[in-house]
């Protein structure tokens, strides 16, 4: 069952149908909500959506008995995203092979947060990427903290960000002292993986086309989507898309894809903007002195030498 790999060349080609609609109570300017909408537009109607616990579990209902999903959706436990995708895909394959359901391409999209995929469900995600289920797409919507429980650090929280578990104090000044985990690179390192990519809300067609490529790749795929979170980043709600753009243009968020063993950058910021353009808009970095931000700029510059080399050689390296 190989699938179509529809590519959206312009906004005019984006289908008007939405499968993630009203009936939710996400925050104003919610980055994950925009990602959900774009991802499901690209995936289309023949899709099952699975949601590990996270801010997008609680924010997508709770207050009233409503559902924003116009396609089948099922909750899974915080650490269950990888397994939920495998169980769902395995059921479709078994039922189709055994003649219990008609043969058809069915997409399985699992939206895990950074807690759900980078921390507690990391092993399960890795297990999912080690199987060969086609049309199984794991989307890590990364707002860089446990945003539902009140902004606690995860392993994708960037160095220097304040969270309620990593506050900037009189003695421990920096806030989060761990480096952001590069989940996409780890997923790309799984043997035989067909498609791994990173994306954010900007450019929107980049995200949608990567979803389409992943689902059509013939195996499980993974997209790490950076999604600004006004609540956790201390940013105005109208800056969500602008922050996505700046994350890319400052080179702090690198847009790439790894397709059938070949790495390539899908956007090269030129000239790359100073990281302060992105960081200074965010309250979570407000405590960092200019010297620390300059240090991040230097690290980013060095890392980009590696990213450029990966783009040249098509091979995975660790920046």
């Amino acid at each position: 069952m190989s699938g179509e790999r529809r590519q959206f060349k312009s906004v005019k080609e984006v289908p008007p149908e939405d499968y993630y609609t009203s009936g939710r109570r996400t925050c104003a300017g919610c980055g994950p909500a925009l990602a959900y909408r774009l991802v499901l537009k690209a995936a289309g109607v023949n899709t099952v959506v699975l949601g590990p616990t996270g801010c997008m579990y609680v924010a997508n209902a709770h207050q009233f008995l409503t559902s924003p999903y116009a396609i089948p959706w099922f909750h899974t436990q915080l650490g269950g995203g990888g397994a939920a995708g495998v169980g769902t895909a395995a059921a479709f394959r078994a039922l189709m092979k055994k003649g219990k359901r008609r043969l058809e391409d069915v997409n399985v999209v699992v939206f895990g947060g950074d807690g759900g995929f980078a921390d507690i469900g990391f092993a399960g995600l890795s297990m999912g990427m080690s199987y060969d289920y086609p049309r199984l797409l794991y989307v890590l919507y990364d707002n860089e903290s446990y945003a539902n429980t009140g902004i606690q650090a995860s392993s994708t929280t960037p160095w220097g960000a304040t969270t309620t578990f990593t506050p900037s104090g009189k003695v421990r000044r920096i806030g989060n002292e761990r480096m952001k985990k590069n989940v996409a690179l780890i997923m790309a390192a799984h043997p035989g993986v067909r498609y791994v990519a990173t994306a954010t809300l900007w450019p929107p067609l980049d995200l949608m086309n990567k979803v389409s490529k992943g689902l059509g790749s013939g195996g499980p795929s993974f997209i790490h989507v950076l999604v600004p979170c006004p609540k956790g980043w201390f940013t105005p709600p109208d800056l969500t898309v602008e922050l996505s753009r700046l994350a890319v243009e400052t080179g702090l968020w690198v847009l790439w894809e790894h397709e059938n063993g070949r790495f390539r950058l899908t956007y090269k910021p030129s000239p790359r903007k100073h990281v302060k353009n992105y960081m200074q808009l965010q309250g979570r970095f407000a405590h960092l002195p200019a010297s620390e931000i300059d240090m991040i700029e230097e690290v980013t510059e060095r890392e980009w030498e590696i990213w450029a080399e990966m783009d040249r050689t098509g091979k995975l390296m660790v920046p």
């Binding site: 099952v48 099922f74 899974t76 397994a83 939920a84 495998v86 169980g87 395995a90 059921a91």
Partner: peptide
């Protein structure tokens, strides 16, 4: 989790 989700399908 796998069993649960396969059952749901």
């Amino acid at each position: 989790e796998i069993a649960k989700h396969a059952s749901a399908v």
